[in-house]
């Protein structure tokens, strides 16, 4: 229910975000409250060398706020991390995961506008999935994304991280994630994937949310594991029940 609500809110919020005409003053205050501890004053970042100064490898992971500089990441990154609920993060070192967004729309716009003002950076992209090609999208997704996100976007595992399922991702968020490469995801520049290719990928990911399940109950689009569960817990259970109906059980005594 909550997720539905959040998605609903996101859908409503999208056109406004594109305008990026938020209240920077509000953004500045919120930044001071939620972000500055890790991202530093004016989003200058806190790198390990500055904290200890003895080389990056020796820094204990959760000792202090350590986070990248936000100068120059632009509205694109701010929009992605805030509207997915990835930020703020409970503590440093965690993989950011999709969470309910804690800010309301004016606050979001303010924060995004503030982060965008920290340096020249990319704007929030406007993908046009309707201009993309579904078949090109599937091919590109298989080549670039399926290794981690699974070929139908059901999410997966990579040593040390969980590539999320893409069922909740909006078109804008997909386009943003491709450019940012959040957490350990690779980053694809416009040279690696052109905007029109991104349109196609977005179109495929949207399709993969409810693909052609002509076979019936989809049981998760991940293949043999749920199939095995159905074979044993539905099929074999029903057939053992038939056996018990036909054959006799133990006589007592």
């Amino acid at each position: 229910m909550r997720r539905l609500l959040v998605t609903g809110l996101l859908a409503l919020a999208l056109p406004a975000a594109a305008a990026a005409a938020g209240d920077q003053q509000l953004g500045y205050r919120l930044f001071g409250q939620y972000c500055v501890a890790c991202h530093g004053v004016a989003g200058s970042g806190i790198a390990p060398a500055r904290v200890i100064g003895t080389g990056p490898q020796r820094v204990p992971r959760q000792q202090l706020g350590l986070a990248p500089s936000l100068q120059g990441v632009g509205a694109l990154a701010a929009d992605f991390y805030l509207r997915t609920g990835y930020m703020p993060l409970q503590h440093v070192g965690l993989q950011p995961r999709r969470k309910p967004v804690i800010f309301d729309e004016p606050q979001l716009e303010g924060l995004i506008a503030y982060v965008a003002s920290l340096g020249r950076g990319p704007k929030v992209p406007k993908p046009h999935p309707e201009r993309g090609s579904l078949s090109e999208g599937m091919q590109l997704f298989t080549d670039h994304c399926a290794g981690c996100h699974q070929v139908v976007g059901e999410g997966g595992y990579v040593t040390g991280a969980l590539p999320p399922p893409l069922k909740d991702a909006t078109s804008t968020q997909i386009a943003e994630a491709i450019r940012i490469g959040p957490y350990v995801m690779p980053r694809f520049s416009t040279k690696a994937l052109s905007p029109s290719q991104v349109n196609s990928i977005v179109r495929y990911v949207r399709y993969a949310k409810s693909p052609d399940d002509r076979g019936g109950w989809a049981i998760g689009h991940v293949g043999p594991i749920p199939e095995g569960l159905v074979a044993w817990f539905l099929g074999m259970t029903a057939l053992v029940a038939c056996c018990i109906a036909i054959g006799r059980r133990f006589r007592r005594g």
């Binding site: 399926a146 070929v151 997966g156 590539p163 019936g216 989809a218 049981i219 689009h221």
Partner: peptide, 27 residues
């Protein structure tokens, strides 16, 4: 008829140089 099994149209064709997460053999 009712439960989808091995929807190969969703997996796409194989090439030696591509792979997907969560691939499994039958149970």
């Amino acid at each position: 008829g009712l439960v989808q099994i091995n929807p190969i149209w969703l997996w796409g064709p194989y090439h030696t140089y591509i792979s997907t997460n969560g691939a499994q053999p039958d149970w």
